[in-house]
Design a protein around this nucleic acid. Structure first.
Lengths: 139, 139
DNA sequence: ATTAGCACTTGCAAAATGCAAGCAAATATA
DNA sequence: TATATTTGCTTGCATTTTGCAAGTGCTAAT
C-alpha cells in the first residue's frame, strides 16, 4: 500500500475511487446486477478495455471486489462486492440523488423516484440485499 | 455544456467531480472554512497550482462555487458554495464515513466520531448552516 | 478443425497531472 | 517614492493517465 497524500479519510477514499470510472463499475454491480468484464464493457458510457481492466484490478487489490471463475465457463470471470465494497452504496446513492436533482439531462427513473421519496429506506434495503449477496459470494 | 457519456445521474455527476481533487476543495470549504486560493494550496494534500486553478474554474462554471473579490483586498478572491454546491455535503460525509471505517491510517477525529454516532443529524446541521451561508454569500 | 467467446494486452495519440519557475496587479514596507 | 511582499494565476516541460483500436492466448461451441 502506497504512501497517502494525507490522513484525511476523504482524501484516502478519493485516492481509491476518485476517478471517472470506478464508481460506475460499482454502480453496474450494485444497481444493474452486472458481474462480468464483458457486461461492464457494454454500459452506455463505453469504458475503454485497458481502463476497465486496470480499474477492476485496483478495486480488487483494495478489497472492494472479488473475482471468481464462472461456474459455467472457465474463461469467464464473475466479479462481486465485498462487504467493504457494499458499503460504498450510500455514496453511490447520494451521488445519484444529487445528479438527478441538478442535471436536467438525467431524468429520474423508477429507482431515482424512490430515492427522492424515501432515500434512507432504499439504502437500507439495498445494503441488506447486497450484504447478503456478498456473504453468499464468499462461499 | 458538453455532450454527456450517458443520461445516468451518477455518470453525469462523476463527469463533474469524479477526480482526485474536486471534492477535496469542496471539503476545505465545507468542513474547514477555507475560502481562498492560497488557503486551498496549503492543504496537506498539496494540490498543484495549475490543477487548483482549473478545478476552481470548472466548479464555478458548473454552478457549484461562486467567486467574489475579498472585501479587504482587491487582489484576493473568496470562494463560496452555491446551494448546488452545498448539496454535495451528504456525498462528502458518506465518503468520509466510509474512509474512516476502511482506512486504518485515517483515524476518526471529533467530527468523524460524531458522524459515526449520529450521521443524519450531523448532515442536517451542516446543511442548514451551509445553506444559510450560501444565502448570505449571495447578497 | 474452425469459429466464436472471453479477458485482457499492446502500441500509439491525446489529454490530464505534477513540478517549479514566471508574470502582473494589488498591497505592505522601508 | 521605491522596493518588497502578497495574490492568483499562467507557463514550459516531463510524467502519467486516458482513449482508440488492433492483437493475443485460452476456453467453448459448432
Amino acid at each position: 500500500m502506497e504512501k497517502n497524500r494525507s490522513d484525511c479519510p476523504i482524501s484516502c477514499s478519493l485516492e481509491v475511487f476518485g476517478d471517472k470510472w470506478s464508481l460506475l463499475i460499482i454502480r453496474d454491480i450494485m444497481l444493474r446486477g452486472k458481474v462480468s468484464y464483458g457486461e461492464f464493457l457494454e454500459s452506455e458510457e463505453k469504458i475503454a478495455t485497458n481502463i476497465l481492466a486496470n480499474r477492476l484490478s485496483v478495486l480488487e487489490a483494495e478489497g472492494i471486489l472479488t473475482k471468481q471463475v464462472s461456474p459455467h465457463n472457465k474463461s469467464k470471470y464473475c466479479y462481486s462486492l465485498t462487504p467493504k465494497g457494499v458499503d460504498l452504496l450510500p455514496i453511490v446513492i447520494e451521488i445519484m440523488d444529487w445528479g438527478a436533482r441538478y442535471h436536467k439531462q438525467c431524468p429520474r427513473r423508477e429507482l431515482g423516484k424512490r430515492i427522492k421519496k424515501e432515500k434512507a429506506m432504499v439504502i437500507r434495503e439495498y445494503l441488506d440485499k447486497l450484504h447478503r449477496d456478498a456473504r453468499h459470494a464468499a462461499l
